[in-house]
Structure formats: C-alpha cells, structure tokens
Design a protein around this nucleic acid. Structure first.
Length: 310
DNA sequence: ACCGCACCCTGAGCGC
DNA sequence: TGCGCTCAGGGTGCGG
C-alpha cells in the first residue's frame, strides 16, 4: 500500500552533486566563456542575470569545487559562479553526442528534456533549450555548451565577486562525507530537535538531503524522530559511519554510469533499488520483514522501520 | 538561542 | 475527458 504519491527520484544531494562535479570538471576547466544567455530575472538568480551576461564572457574556468550541495565554478579573475541545483536542477551538455545528462534532477524532467531534444534545433545540435533552461554557457572554442535547467526553480545562481564573503557558504557545517562521530556528538548535545532535522541542517553538516538522511538513519538503527540530545555516543559513531557509507555508495553508483548515457526513463536503475527505506513505507523491511512506516519530521517525510530503528 | 513551520514552484496523480 | 486539488522537496526567514 502506497500512502504517498510517487515523486521524482534523483533529487540532487551530495553524491549527485559530486558526480556532477567530476563529470563537469574536464568539460569546463581551461575553457573560455563566450556567449552566455539566461532566462528572465527571478528568484532563481541571486545575481541579476543581466550582470551574469555582462560579466561572464571572456572568463576562463580554473576549477570546479563542491561545498555541500553547492558547486563553485572558479574563474580566472578571482570571481566564482555559484550554483545550487535545488530539487529539480539539471546540468546538461549541449553539443555532445546526445543531450547528455550531467546531473539528473527528476526523471520527469529528463523526459521533457528528451522531447525537447527530439525537436532538435539550434543554437546547439542535439538539444533545444526550453522554457526551463535558465542558464546557457557557451565557450569560445565553439565546443559543447553547458546548460542549467530547472523546472521548479528551487535552484540558485550567483556570481561571487573576488574576496566576497558568501553568507550561505559560511553557514555550512563540515562536509557530510567527512563528518566525524565527535562532531555529531558535539552538535547534538543539549538539542531537543529530532535527529532527522539535525541531519538535514546544512549548518550542522553539509550535503545530506531527505533520501540519504533516511537511509543513513536506517543503517545506524536510529529512529528519525529521536531527540538529538538523547543520542548515545555509540549511535553517533554508527551514524557517522552510515552517512559515509551511503554517501560514498551514492557516488559510486552515480559514478558508475558516468561513461554511459543515462536512459530517459532511468531504467538502468541500479541506483534507486538500493534504497532500503526511502519511499518504501508499506513494504516489508528487508532486514526484519516488519512493515516500514512513514512519519513527517520537520515538515519532511521520513521513512523507517519501527523494529530496526529505536 | 533554538526550533518548527510556511513559503517558494511546478507537475504528477488522484478524485469527481 | 478534464478540471481542480494536494503533495513533494531544499533552503530561507519568521514567529513562537
């Protein structure tokens, strides 16, 4: 019995953003930007899109850095282009053999992207930017362009000036891939909030979203509703280990398809079948057989096994 | 100081 | 068939 409607998979969390960074880096580093086009000003653009079109052309990409779920495109004048993919953000390569998915937002979006691709049109062969394509980066060498598409516009784009302090980056806690048991222990002391809320709090640890939080909590045997302050030392250790495990596995499975075209319907799917609890409420726990449950914590749906997680 | 929650946004899926 | 309603999610900002 499914209590919640099927929603999009592949919401970009740390592993998806990291895979995206690895795929994108060789396509960006060393190239000089030329034409840059954007959609209309909206909340999507923290920096006015007209300024992006004015400032970006001529810049050379030096590096591509990830901080939590953010990507920073480091440019040769000391500025950086900050990208956040929100829920449905996608980075696409236009001008590659296929409109290659560099990072998947939701599958639905891919289907739309495919349909748009079938209509095939300039400015770049293989993909015609649609109404959801908000940023297009063209390069002086005339090679593949990079597109940022985002159906729900929860993503963000910002130009960071040389030396500029960016509050939203300064707020970030340690990267979730490197968070230690001790850091979780310290962060949780005296806190009454649910541990699930703590894991989603980017100022405590950066990069974890709803899917990996649920999966890590299951593997650590901790119920999402548990008060953070009630965690025992040993549970913080289990959580830190579980986080590293699921995030690294996420990167591996995402990374394993780097060289393959991602099927529009996501049917290659070695990936979503690895979720042990996420969106599996009503199904039997793969460890103990008990029916998995769903509860809302901090306004986010959480999935857990009432037997395995205490 | 801490924490929960509404808000933003869109499309899928459902009921009627 | 088609309309209208609900819901999901990340991050921010506000109110308690």
């Amino acid at each position: 019995m499914r209590l919640t409607p099927r929603i999009e998979e592949n919401v970009p969390e740390l592993p998806e953003v990291e895979v995206s960074r690895r795929r994108l880096a060789p396509m960006l580093i060393g190239r000089r930007l030329s034409e840059v086009s954007t959609s209309r000003p909206s909340r999507f653009f923290i920096t006015d899109p007209r300024r992006l079109r004015e400032r970006l052309p001529g810049r050379v990409v030096l590096d591509l850095v990830r901080r939590g779920k953010y990507l920073l495109v480091v440019l040769d004048d000391g500025s950086s282009l900050l990208l956040h993919l929100g829920m449905t953000g996608q980075l696409l390569c236009a001008g590659c053999s296929n409109p290659r998915l560099l990072l998947g937002g939701e599958r639905v979006g891919e289907r739309v992207a495919e349909r748009a691709a079938e209509r095939a049109a300039p400015p770049w062969p293989g993909f015609s930017p649609d109404q959801h394509t908000h940023l297009q980066l063209g390069f002086e060498d005339g090679g593949p362009a990079i597109l940022f598409r985002d159906v729900r516009r929860f993503g963000r784009v910002m130009l960071v000036e040389p030396g500029e302090e960016v509050a939203r980056l300064l707020r970030l806690g340690p990267d979730a891939l490197e968070v230690s048991a001790d850091q979780l222990w310290q962060a949780s002391r005296g806190r009454r909030r649910a541990v699930k809320s703590m894991l989603l709090d980017q100022s405590v640890l950066a990069g974890v979203g709803n899917i990996y939080a649920d999966e890590a909590l299951f593997r650590a045997g901790v119920r999402p509703t548990r008060r953070a302050g009630r965690l025992r030392r040993q549970e913080c250790e289990a959580l830190a280990a579980a986080l590293r495990q699921v995030l690294e596995r996420g990167i591996e499975t995402g990374g394993s398809s780097v060289d393959d075209f991602v099927a529009p319907d996501g049917s290659d799917g070695s990936y979503q079948t690895e979720h042990l609890v996420y969106q599996r409420d009503g199904q039997p726990c793969q460890r103990c057989g008990r029916e998995l449950e769903r509860v809302v914590v901090g306004g986010r749906s959480s999935h857990y096994c009432p037997s395995c997680q205490r």
